[in-house]
């Protein structure tokens, strides 16, 4: 295997694997397999994509949707997806409870959820998210803002600057 591909795979595993799995969980209950398959597909690309992270999210999205359909056919998707999952590492000293955040995130619509995950934990910009979900960057931004607002409402995130620390 070429060194560049190996370095890219290692970089993806270290920085993006967890976020990609979280992203794939929107559609299926076996995100590890989907992400692994996407990484294998990425390594087969010649030449390598210009933006491999965006390419990976596209591949994971396709694979997760396919896997979710297969799970639906097996009548397992509904029960598995309804289970509360430990999507985040247990938060220590954080403002948000990890399980509550996961439940709130899972309750969002699919469009808002995938934009939020891709932006917050994937680090994609709005242009890449627009390409990923098939909309404009402005629409991606609107979805993101709407998702954040919905999460804030569900989680009751305190905003010290606006509530307790008004601008002088």
């Amino acid at each position: 295997m070429e060194k560049a591909v190996l370095k890219l795979v290692q970089h993806v595993l270290e920085t993006q694997a967890a976020a990609l799995e979280l992203y794939a969980r929107a559609w299926c209950t076996t995100p590890e397999d989907v992400v692994q398959e996407a990484i294998v597909q990425l390594a087969q690309q010649r030449p390598l994509p210009e933006r491999p992270i965006g390419w990976l999210y596209c591949a994971v999205r396709r694979g997760a949707i396919s896997a979710g359909r297969a799970e639906s056919r097996r009548k397992r998707h509904e029960s598995a997806a309804a289970r509360p999952l430990d999507w985040f590492e247990p938060a220590v000293g954080e403002a948000l409870d990890a399980r509550a955040a996961a439940e709130a995130l899972g309750a969002l619509s699919l469009e808002q959820r995938e934009v939020l995950v891709a932006r917050l934990w994937g680090g994609l910009n709005y242009g890449e998210i627009g390409e990923l979900v098939g909309c404009s960057s402005s629409a991606a931004h609107r979805r993101y803002a709407a998702g954040l607002a919905a999460l804030r409402e569900r989680l009751g995130v305190a905003c010290p600057k606006t509530n307790s620390c008004p601008k002088s």
Partner: peptide, 24 residues
């Protein structure tokens, strides 16, 4: 362009770390 309260929410959410990958 995000409202300030959403910025705070964004920061709080981004502080959460996705569960470690299970990829072998």
């Amino acid at each position: 362009l995000l409202p300030e309260e959403l910025n705070d929410c964004q920061q709080a959410l981004s502080a959460l770390v996705p569960r470690a990958s299970r990829i072998d």
